[in-house]
Amino acid sequence: MTAAAADKPKKLVIICYSGELEKTWATMILASTAGAMEMETTVFVTFWGLQTFVKDKKRITGENWMQKMMSFMQRPGASHRPLSKMNFMGMGPWMMFKLAKKYNVAKPKDLLEMAQAVGVTFLPCQMTMDMFGLKREDLIDGMGEPVGAATALQLMTEADSTLFI
């Protein structure tokens, strides 16, 4: 059975909507593992999720004062995700990373890089980019072309499994 099953790769689509650390972690674990399982994996990155895909060293993004202020108040980048509970001004995530290191758990950023290495496609949402004033060069390297809801829906209807995280 395995040979026949593996001949036609399964398709997974993840809608990466949230920007909190714990949800980002879930997205990256599933995306990288799906890639390793040779599933055709696409992650549509939208709304708060797109903040994770801004380069870590970018501090302020956006073109007008409102966009700049938004980015100031929620630091972008895969390494700067807040927890939805027990964030305590960054103390929570700091402890989470300490624990992750102690128990040899890969960080979201490492998993993201591994996912890219196994061929997972990350597609940024054009509308979110416009609204937050994000440019292609603000985002990490290796992302796909920006797309919209129609592309996401088409991918979802063709997929074997779809997740909204």
Binding site: A36, N104, V105, A106, V118
Partner: peptide, 9 residues
Amino acid sequence: GLSCPLPIL
């Protein structure tokens, strides 16, 4: 020593 999903990766 590695945790999920690193052994698979």
